[in-house]
């Protein structure tokens, strides 16, 4: 199946309409896209900041989920959240093979992450962040996260 065709259509739709706070930073080709997201309400943890998401698509997208991480750049910090490691790796069931569904798309992932941040009140990293960031060598899609606190 052609991931490229589906992504081309997603891109056309994104250019026609984008939800508030979400924008396309870079979408050249169908391997890697960068999306910017902002938290729009007055949650003080994220006020005034813009975050950048790096999407990597495999050939079997959308049957398989894309790999999505926050990317640190001079303008874009990594948001503080109990499900976001300080190296940008995100622990969200939607991005996990089990939780993924092919009806999701780049836009719906951005919206989900945006609302994950919006609802958060803890200025925390996930437990064991330092150790994880130091020792993790696997790609995000190969990590088996334990969803220890699904209520966050």
């Amino acid at each position: 199946m052609s991931a490229a065709r589906r992504l081309a259509r997603e891109l056309t739709k994104l250019h026609e309409h984008l939800p508030p706070g979400i924008s396309v930073a870079l979408a050249e080709g169908f391997q890697e896209w960068r999306m910017n997201i902002k938290v729009l309400d007055d949650n003080p943890i994220y006020a005034g900041e813009t975050y950048q998401l790096l999407f990597r698509f495999g050939n079997s997208y959308p049957i398989e989920p894309p790999e999505v991480v926050f990317k640190q750049t001079p303008e874009h910090p990594i948001p503080l959240h109990p499900h976001v490691y300080s190296n940008g790796i995100i622990c969200l069931d939607l991005l996990d093979r089990q939780g993924w569904s092919p009806v999701h798309n780049v836009e719906s992932i951005c919206v989900s992450l945006q609302s994950m941040l919006t609802g958060n009140t803890k200025r925390e990293r996930p437990p064991g962040d330092e150790q994880f960031v130091r020792s993790n060598r696997s790609r995000p899609r190969d990590i088996n996260f334990l969803f220890h606190d699904n209520d966050v």
């Binding site: 199946m1 049957i63 398989e64 093979r97 993924w100 569904s101 092919p102 009806v103």
Partner: peptide, 17 residues
């Protein structure tokens, strides 16, 4: 063809799970 491709990996309804 596509829904079967999905069901082979995960036997769930894509919308309702």
């Amino acid at each position: 063809a596509t829904i079967i491709e999905h069901l082979k990996r995960s036997a769930t309804d894509p919308l309702t799970r």
